[in-house]
């Protein structure tokens, strides 16, 4: 079956002036199947966000291609909806207005828009806050609005850039469960970026462990933990074994990178 989203030998370099280049991502290849939840796992600065920005069409690869349904992504792609780490909500719009934004762009009629927005506001448990402005909400609630906004626009792929990293531990756990619930119900394809092994193990069907700069695929692991999943999966022995395995991979990366820097 044709993968919904793929990267073919993608390299991306950034110019840092005086003719110097930094390679953020190197020879990155990945196929994502429809309905799959893939986590890109790596340390900060390993190029995961660069990769996500290419999937979203915000930037183009220097070499190689990113494809949606086999077609190259050459501009900002609304079929790949992004959930930003810093929320990126429109402060002048209420929760309702934010959630309806994508539908308005799709010229969905007003009553249909209201109906669909209400459904997703309920899904992220924000009923009663429809007329609040983002600035009145907590970080966790704002991240929920972002999630509802992108889900209402109904993209084929969700690209999530460390969406829960800024939240406190308890809210994060709640949001992870929410995402699992939503994803298992909608079977949306998700590419999720994280630097947390736990988060990757809780959420992912497959985990792409990335090497430190330049970002490369170090290994792709199938997450065999059973579904439907719950955050209590962390208590199982299988979980501990997988975590140890990933930790060993990541640790060697950290050491290699640390050694490079020390030189």
């Amino acid at each position: 079956m044709l993968p919904i989203l793929s990267a073919e030998h993608v390299t991306r370099t950034f110019s840092i002036g005086r003719g110097a280049d930094v390679v953020a991502v190197q020879d990155f290849s990945l196929d994502v199947a429809t309905g799959e939840l893939v986590c890109l796992l790596g340390a900060s600065g390993c190029g995961k966000t660069t990769m996500l920005n290419m999937f979203a069409g915000f930037i183009q690869p220097t070499e190689g291609r990113v494809l949606l349904h086999g077609e190259p992504i050459t501009r900002i792609e609304p079929r790949c909806g992004v959930v930003f780490q810093s929320y990126a909500l429109f402060p002048w719009q209420t929760v309702q207005g934010n959630v309806e934004f994508g539908l308005r762009m799709q010229r969905v009629p007003a009553d249909e828009r209201r109906r669909r927005a209400a459904r997703f506001i309920e899904l992220v448990k924000l009923q009663g806050f429809e007329r609040h402005y983002p600035a009145e909400l907590s970080g966790g609630m704002q991240q929920r609005v972002t999630l509802a906004r992108i889900l209402a626009a109904d993209p084929e792929v969700l690209l999530m850039d460390e969406p829960f990293a800024a939240l406190d531990a308890m809210t994060r756990q709640e949001m992870q469960e929410e995402l699992l619930r939503i994803q298992e119900a909608s079977r949306k394809t998700v590419v999720f970026i994280t630097h947390s092994i736990d988060e990757a193990l809780i959420l992912a069907d497959r985990i792409v462990v990335m090497s430190a700069r330049p970002g490369r695929v170090k290994v792709i692991l199938d997450n065999t933990l059973p579904r439907p999943r719950h955050v209590t999966i962390q208590l199982s022995p299988d979980y501990a074994a997988l975590k140890a395995e990933i930790w060993a991979l990541v640790e060697s990366e950290v050491h290699r990178h640390g050694g490079e820097q020390g030189r």
């Binding site: 900002i76 930003f84 990126a88 002048w92 934004f101």
Partner: peptide, 28 residues
């Protein structure tokens, strides 16, 4: 904030919508 413009385009906004529904209210 260019991130707001990015977010709007990602949600399907074209140039005219970006101007009237993002840049102007954000700058107001």
């Amino acid at each position: 904030d260019p991130l707001l413009v990015r977010a709007a385009r990602n949600l399907g906004a074209k140039d005219v919508a970006v101007m009237w529904q993002v840049i102007l209210p954000a700058a107001l």
